[in-house]
Amino acid sequence: MSTQSAPDPKIPVPRGPLPILPQSRPARMVEITIDGKPVSVPQGSTLLDAARSIGIDTPTLCFLESLTPVNVCRICVVEVEGMRALVPACSRQAEPGMVVKTDSERVQLSRRLVLELLASSVDVSTAPQLQEYMRRYSARPERFGEPATPAAEGERDAAQPGHHQPPETGAATVAQPVKIDNKLYVRDYGKCILCYKCVEACGVDAQNTFAIAVAGRGFEVRISTEYNTPLTNSACVYCGNCIGVCPTGALMFRSEYEMRQSGTWDESKQTHTDTICPYCGVGCTLTVHVQDEKIVKVTSPLDQEITEGHLCIKGRFGWEWVNQKK
């Protein structure tokens, strides 16, 4: 939906002078060089903005326009002349005179390694974007060995910071049983790349509910409620905004999860229809995913200007009745 609609004819056009809006000062421009090309970007722009402005596609995993940058995945790193280490393009601001390389050997190696480290420790089977990056950088996660024994239920949640078992011959992973504790969505943390997006969406960046946070340390870091308490006993209000931002399918509608389990999930048979949420006056855009005449999940476009893709429990999950009517 476009938020710019034609003026309503019933609203009179003012005759007198128009109200003067404070003029925003034109942003000062910063000149930098990216991959040999001069680029000029408004002050405050990140290197990611600058690279995008000249059509360079920089991979990102933990970055989302609507969330505060956490710069933890490091897939977006670029080389800046004079800096010892690479810098994250998603959060490093352009400074006058910077000379940036986005595709040097060092950059490629770090990006490939980030992908290999992730894909050798996390199930990325429902993370299409990440898979595409893996192809782009020829990542071979399997070279780190067969996956080690998966964790039993609750094992990763009981880890002690600063202690770990001696390694096995294969590659340690975050594989663990799926957490299914409510009717609306499941948490499959064996697919979690720890991008922090769900925590941000549940916290100050959108929902202000703070049901989940990052717990543990090192490789045992995980997204958790306090003491791994079930969602039904936590602060969660089931807005599903964490699902909306999760890039890997770790957080998934229970309907989608169950269809995938039974082998009936088939995106080629699905239609996506945009509509306006009927529940309240905010007017969030809903994208309704329909398969076999049933709503199988609801998303909202992340670039929606007002709500940035965030919904509440009603818009996100309140369509059971539609399915039942059929």
Partner: peptide
């Protein structure tokens, strides 16, 4: 290697997983 694997804060991928792989390779 074990020290760094234990003491990594776990925030960023290169260190969180890299310290694990480093230890595994050395063990082997």
């Amino acid at each position: 290697a074990s020290f760094f694997r234990d003491e990594s804060c776990g925030q960023c991928v290169p260190c969180r997983v890299g310290t694990v792989r480093q230890e595994e390779i050395l063990w082997r």
